[in-house]
Design a protein around this nucleic acid. Structure first.
Length: 961
RNA sequence: AGGCACGUAGCUCAGUGGGAGAGCACUACCUUGACACGGUAGGGGUCCGCGGUUCAAUCCCGCGCGUGCCUACCA
């Protein structure tokens, strides 16, 4: 008769999720009002790059943020979660240029700046929409009307303001320094954007002949022979006796006809002597234009700087004409061949060479000397260091503080100009007079000479420059807005440790500099997700898990087809094989709730090795929750929430609750406390684990089972007033426990909890959506340690009964007689009172007796639950005496081990004297309990032995068995 | 090379100065009126090694071995 009985047996997220998503958005529940008088709680979403779609790492970080935001919103905070998207300058460049190369065999220079930017904007529109759609599908409660883009008008204004102010303050300047050049993207990149790894290479020895000393030469070693074309000196350590006689002499630089000096140097670079006399020959070639160390030497020794590699990574002019125009790799071969021909090449050996590559383009980085724009980092870092030292911002996990501080205290100036197009163009204008005018608006005239023929700097800013302003540029800075006053600083930043320096450090520096306040109180750093083998997930490896595939499911064919569509820059067939191997069965649809719950539950301080079946566990959990609710809804007819609420509001009404009811409500309030405390300290996995355990192991496995007989209806019960009253109480407790669980779990899995909550009967005057109800509060008045003790006893007895039944092959469906011998009168009273629970959950017909010492009937199995409690199951002749003896003997052995340990401890005078009293008492109690249990076991074994003897006699009497 | 983590059941990982835990996997049984995306029971661990502190160490400290991450301009 009830419509609820039509609930499907399996939870179907595809039917449920869209309804609530629409409902929440249409009602504007995600929006926070900056003028609200309630206490603000704010988080800024780390804006995803417009390079494509969200990956599983986003799903992790964003889910944790949504859990915090939904939790705080339900606690009554004015919770604001700022959405946005990042223009990701160089990442978009690499992407678009690869595409351009593949489709039209063109570079961005063939297209020109305007057309390239037009395409970039078109890309941004497509990708941006896709990203926000994905965020909505995951149920993230972002404050959508506030959504921002790092290159929208207001962000642009903030960027220009910040640049101009820092320039005015002397914290942004232009200087010619050694930089990292990416010859593929043709731009400078910052130190952080270079990945250094050891690659296979060679170490070449070259002999440079000494001028005026025929036959004499000095040997230098190098991993980059082609740079010798730009050498301007050979350096030896000043204290190196071997070369003292050569100080100030000249060598003839092979292949070039140039003469360069041998200079004595006594330098410390990074705390190490340079050159190191113990390495190789102790002499080094000096190429100031293309090596950072060499440049430092040149500065000190006043050596000339000769640039022989150009922006495209080709040998250029001052080098001999023969090599000009050659790519570095080709030049290397030519130079080596020529050196060999000239007879100056020494030994060549295989060598592991540390090689820097551009993180984005993969190009081998060329160190070069170039004029760029820089941010003076040290003064900014000082403030950030002080703020962290003063605890204004703290890191979770705490150990990340050290990483942050180490980098901050060793910080180097930040190169912020890029020779790219997609980004914020630097607000600086060059005049033919050589002067540079930095201004908020295009200036009419040069600030130095007054001339009007100015041209704007071609360079754009590092993408992280605008990101660094994000926590306040999104709130209206540089204007003094209400939003800024309300939501800055943010309460928390949640992001991955991989962008601690790129982003977190920059936001700290910028926020403190421009607003005088830290941008966030807490930085929570998430795990890193890898595949199940610990390898980073990546499209080019075919091991990546797309969060939406987990939500909606994908067949293997779909996964493989996608390889063709996305065309990553690798062997497609090989990639398809990898996909087939990694996802042989495709990915089943799990729904957003399951993925979200999994993210919270799996997040630990270590990396997460994610696999599809690890998420499946939580899909099953969501289904379990669904079915528990389904059961409740099928049995809640006639339930009156108001009447039940009235009953709970009186002491007498509460006292009338049955023990299992008091137990589950006690457990419920405990788990509420656990979840709240765990979230308070960002232990998402503990919070999720507590909910999981409560729902599955307590609510489903015990309470619902115990409740069943009280809920079932039948004509025979209609006139039974006491039973009907009891039924109503059980309905009320079940409904209440579920309703509270939905509120508790809502931040983790919003869709299924909203769906169930909406269906549950509950008192009127509640809000129209679960997401704006009140988060449960732990209420210690519901703690009932007596009920918890009693329930635990019943569980132990029931488990013991089940064990005996299973051991002796009694069908679970078949009820069996058992005798519960309980020596302890209190325990006996509990068991007698609640016998029905044992009988129902273990499917036994139980009789309780006090006489624990009486011999058990022959042929019965026995389980000793404690020193004063045993379960006797008569089995007639069915008992396998030998097996039973083995089982009991093993229990005795365990008890003996335990007793020996405790005896030893309690016999130790130092322990008795020094250990706290309660510990000593506890150990004594354990010993007594264990000894009593051992006696029971020994008795049982003795009985079995005599039975065995009897049986043997019987067998002998009756002839062959 | 330095810094920081981590080493617990076959696998992935929780955990605590005083009785070793979960999920998956494994074994056996069960279509019991919420759920087979389920239920019940079971097997399985010198808590990496060696020292130290302590009445007591899987937990705290030191050393060693192994793994991972980050930082780093050794030709």
């Amino acid at each position: 008769m009830t419509t609820t009985s039509a609930l499907p047996k399996q939870y179907d997220p595809s039917e449920v999720e869209p309804r609530w998503r629409r409902f929440w958005l249409e009602n504007g529940f995600f929006h926070a009002d900056e003028a609200s008088p309630t206490v603000p709680y704010s988080i800024t979403l780390p804006p995803p790059n417009v390079t494509g779609s969200l990956h599983i790492g986003h799903a992790l970080g964003f889910t944790l943020q949504d859990i915090l935001i939904r939790w705080k919103r339900m606690q009554g905070f004015n919770a604001m979660w700022m959405p946005g998207i990042d223009h990701a300058s160089i990442a978009v460049h690499v992407l678009l240029e690869k595409d351009l190369q593949r489709r039209e065999k063109k570079t961005r220079f063939d297209l020109g700046r305007d057309e390239f930017l037009r395409q970039a904007w078109a890309w941004k529109e497509r990708s941006g929409v896709r990203i926000s759609e994905q965020e909505k599908l995951m149920g993230y409660s972002l404050d959508w009307p506030r959504e921002r883009f790092t290159m929208d008008e207001r962000a642009n204004r903030a960027v220009i303001e910040a640049f101009v102010r820092l320039h005015e303050e002397g914290l942004i300047f232009r200087a010619k320094r050694m930089i990292n050049w990416d010859p593929v993207s043709e731009t400078v990149v910052s130190d952080l954007e270079v990945d250094i790894a050891e690659e296979n290479g060679s170490l070449w020895d070259i002999r440079y002949p000494i001028v005026g000393a025929p036959g004499e030469a000095i040997t230098v070693a190098t991993t980059r022979p082609e740079t010798m074309l730009g050498d301007t000196a050979v350096a030896v350590h000043a204290g190196d006796e071997r070369y003292k006689h050569l100080h100030g002499k000249q060598v003839e630089l092979p292949l070039t006809g140039r003469q360069i000096p041998i200079v004595a140097v006594d330098l410390m670079i990074d705390g190490k002597p340079w050159p190191d006399p113990s390495f190789g020959s102790g002499a080094v070639k000096v190429t100031p234009a293309h090596d950072p160390s060499d440049y430092e030497v040149a500065l000190q020794a006043g050596l000339p700087v000769l640039q022989v590699i150009d922006a495209k990574g080709r040998i250029c002019d001052p080098a001999p004409a023969k090599y000009v125009g050659m790519a570095v790799a080709d030049a290397r071969k030519a130079v080596v061949a020529d050196l060999e021909a000239a007879g100056v090449l020494g030994t060549v050996k295989d060598y592991r060479v540390p090689r820097g590559r551009s993180q984005r383009s993969g190009a081998v980085i060329e160190p070069m000397l170039m004029e760029q724009w820089w941010v003076k980092a040290a003064p900014l870092a000082e403030k950030a260091i002080a703020a962290v030292e003063q605890g204004k911002t703290r890191f979770v996990p705490e150990h990340e503080t050290k990483t942050f501080m180490h980098w901050m205290t060793h910080i180097k100036d930040w190169c912020i100009s890029r020779q790219l197009w997609w980004g914020h163009r630097i607000p600086a204008w060059h005049c033919p007079c050589g002067g540079i005018t930095v201004a908020r608006e295009p200036p009419a005239a040069c600030s130095h000479c007054g001339r009007t023929e100015l041209r704007q700097d071609e360079d754009i800013l590092d993408t992280w420059f605008s990101s660094g302003l994000w926590p306040f540029s999104t709130l209206g800075w540089p204007d003094k807005t209400r939003e800024l006053a309300t939501f800055y600083p943010n309460n928390v930043l949640v992001t991955g440790p991989d962008i601690l320096f790129f982003w977190v450090a920059r936001m700290m520096m910028m926020g403190l500099h421009f607003l005088g306040k830290v941008p966030f109180r807490t930085v929570y750093l998430t795990s890193i997700i890898t595949d199940e083998n610990g390898a980073k997930m990546s499209k080019t490896k075919g091991n990546g898990i797309d969060p939406l595939d987990v939500v909606f499911g994908a067949t293997l064919e779909q996964l493989v087809e996608r390889v063709d569509i996305e065309k990553p820059p690798v062997d497609l067939d090989q990639l398809k094989r990898a996909v087939r191997k990694n996802f042989p069965k495709g990915i089943p649809a799990m729904g957003a709730d399951a993925l979200r719950f999994a993210m919270a539950a799996l997040n630990t301080t270590l990396r997460i090795r994610l696999s599809v079946d690890r998420v499946e566990k939580y899909r099953n959990f969501i289904n379990k929750l669904w079915n528990a609710s389904r059961f409740a809804l099928m049995n809640l007819d006639g339930y009156d929430p108001e009447r039940f609420e009235a009953q709970l509001s009186t002491a007498a009404g509460r006292a009338a609750l049955g023990m299992p009811e008091r137990w589950i409500l006690s457990r419920l309030q405990a788990v509420v406390g656990e979840v709240d405390a765990a979230l308070e300290s960002f232990r998402f996995n503990d919070a999720a684990g507590a909910i999981f355990h409560f729902v599955w192991d307590e609510l489903c496995d015990w309470y619902i089972e115990v409740a069943k007989p009280h809920l079932y209806t039948g004509p025979e019960f209609e006139q039974d007033a006491a039973r009907n009253a009891r039924r109503h109480v059980v309905q009320g407790v079940l409904a209440t426990a579920l309703e509270t669980t939905m509120r508790l779990m809502h931040p983790f899995s919003p869709f299924v909890t909203e769906e169930i909550w909406q269906k549950l009967p509950k008192p009127p005057q509640l809000p129209g959506s679960l997401m704006i109800t009140v988060f449960p509060r732990s209420d210690p008045s519901w703690t009932d340690s007596e009920a918890e003790r009693e329930m635990q006893l019943l569980q132990e007895v029931a488990v013991g009964c089940r064990m005996l039944k299973q051991t002796y092959g009694v069908s679970p469906a078949q009820s069996t007689d058992v005798e519960l011998r309980v020596g302890n009168p209190e325990q006996r009273a509990v068991i007698e009172r609640q016998l029905g629970i044992i009988e129902r959950t273990a499917k036994v017909a139980a009789r309780v007796s006090a006489d624990i010492a009486a011999p058990a009937p022959a042929g019965s199995a026995k389980e000793v639950v404690g020193g004063e409690l045993e379960i006797v199951m008569p089995l007639g002749g069915l008992i396998d005496i030998a097996a039973e003896k083995t089982r009991i003997a093993r229990d005795i052995a365990k008890a003996d081990k335990e007793i020996t340990g405790l005896d030893k401890k309690l016999g130790n005078a130092d322990f008795l004297a020094r250990a706290p009293e309660d510990v000593v008492a506890e150990q004594r109690a354990r010993l007594a309990e264990e000894q009593a249990r051992r006696r029971r076991l020994a008795d049982a074994l003795a009985t079995l032995s005599s039975e065995a003897t009897e049986a043997a006699k019987d067998g002998a009497k009756g002839g062959a068995a």
